[in-house]
Design a protein around this nucleic acid. Structure first.
Lengths: 110, 110
DNA sequence: ATTTAATATCGTAATATTGCAATATAATAA
DNA sequence: TTATTATATTGCAATATTACGATATTAAAT
């Protein structure tokens, strides 16, 4: 007990939850924010920008990469990451679906 | 150590992460999915639909309500919850911003 | 070959989350 | 007033996450 009952939910529900979970940390939001401000793929400076130690940043980057939120590669001494539109779009479509569905009904909830 | 360094990030980054965190669980995704299938506000049957015990569902509902993802109230014996468009839109706008920002640049990342 | 620089991995401590049994609360019904 | 029904709260065990020091890896520079 205490463990998430993954097997009780649909693949889609689990996959979506995983992507959302990867996005759901201020450090990872900050990484994405930073990725958007730079014109080129990031190269090492990300550790200097964040108020976290290098291993921690590395771990967050790994998590973002594993879930497909960022893509790219480690090229020798430096990293080259940028946001993967495809995964962001999955989440946006989910939210669009919610908003569309709400719009169709006339539920009243104060 | 081990605790999220909330104070190191902006209010916006933290708030967004909190909303995303509330969405980031298969049970809570399932609750939202279910809320979209019913025409009326839910009334008690949500516990029967989910493969979780009543206290667990109650806790998930509380978390969704605390972050503003669902709104509504407990009316005597039953609950009346539905999705709060406002909060969903905050997340969608964030994602739209990401996608818009990506579109403007020409970063190449394989 | 050694050094240097950038990133990854391991190990571990602190904290957070998840799930549920037991129990409490609150409102309606009898 | 006493059931009954629906939901909330408490307490706790199991697991997951977060952060970082120490160390490893990897590639370029010297």
């Amino acid at each position: 007990m205490g463990i998430t009952k993954t097997e009780s939910f649909s693949t889609q529900q689990n996959e979506l939850a995983n992507i959302l979970k990867a996005l759901a940390h201020p450090a990872r939001v900050a990484i994405i924010d930073y990725l958007l401000t730079v014109d080129e793929c990031i190269c090492s400076d990300i550790v200097n920008v964040l108020p976290l130690a290098q291993p921690t940043v590395s771990q967050h980057l790994k998590e973002l990469k594993n879930t497909g939120i960022i893509k790219g590669s480690i090229e020798g001494k430096s990293i080259c990451y940028c946001i993967d539109e495809k995964t962001i779009k999955i989440v946006r479509e989910y939210l669009d679906g919610i908003l569309l569905s709400i719009g169709k009904t006339n539920k009243i909830c104060q």
